[in-house]
Amino acid sequence: MTGSKDHPQAWHPDSYQKNAGFVAALGVPVLDLLAPQAHEDILDLGCGDGVLTEALVRRCRSVTGIDASPEQIEGARSKGLDAHVMDGQAIQLNGKYDAVFSNAALHWMVDADAVIHGVRGVLKPGGRFVGEFGGHGNVHHIRTALERALDDRGFNGASFNPWFFPSVEEYEARLKSAGFLVDTIQLIDRPTELPGDVTGWLATFAESYLDALPAGERDDYIADVRAMLEPVLKRPDGQWFADYVRLRFAAHLPEEV
Score class of each variant (00 low, 15 high):
Ala227Glu: 15
Pro236Tyr: 14
Met228Pro: 06
Val225Pro: 03
Ala227Trp: 07
Arg235Ser: 11
Asp237Ile: 08
Val245Ala: 05
Arg246Asn: 03
Phe249Ile: 06
Val232Ile: 12
Leu247Phe: 00
Arg235Asp: 07
Arg248Phe: 05
Arg235Val: 14
Pro231Val: 08
Phe249Pro: 01
Pro231Ala: 11
Ala242Phe: 03
Asp237Ala: 13
Arg226Ala: 11
Arg248Glu: 06
Pro254Cys: 07
Ala242His: 03
Arg226Gly: 09
Glu255His: 11
Ala227Cys: 09
Leu253Phe: 00
Arg226Pro: 02
Leu233Phe: 06
Arg246Pro: 00
Arg246Leu: 01
Arg226Trp: 14
Glu255Trp: 00
Pro231Ile: 05
Lys234Trp: 03
Asp243Met: 12
Ala250Leu: 02
Lys234Gly: 13
Ala250Arg: 13
Ala227Arg: 14
Arg235Thr: 14
Phe249Gly: 01
Arg248Gly: 01
Arg226Ile: 05
Gln239His: 06
His252Ile: 06
Trp240Ser: 03
Met228Cys: 10
Leu229Glu: 11
Leu247Ala: 04
Glu256Met: 09
Tyr244His: 09
Pro236Gln: 13
Phe249Tyr: 14
Val245Tyr: 02
Gly238Phe: 08
Leu247Asp: 05
His252Arg: 15
Phe241Ile: 05
Phe249Asp: 04
Glu256Gln: 14
Trp240Phe: 05
Val225Met: 06
Glu256Tyr: 06
Val245Trp: 01
Ala250Asp: 04
Leu233Pro: 00
Glu230Pro: 05
Val225Ile: 10
Tyr244Cys: 04
Val245Pro: 00
Ala250Asn: 08
Val232Arg: 13
Phe249His: 11
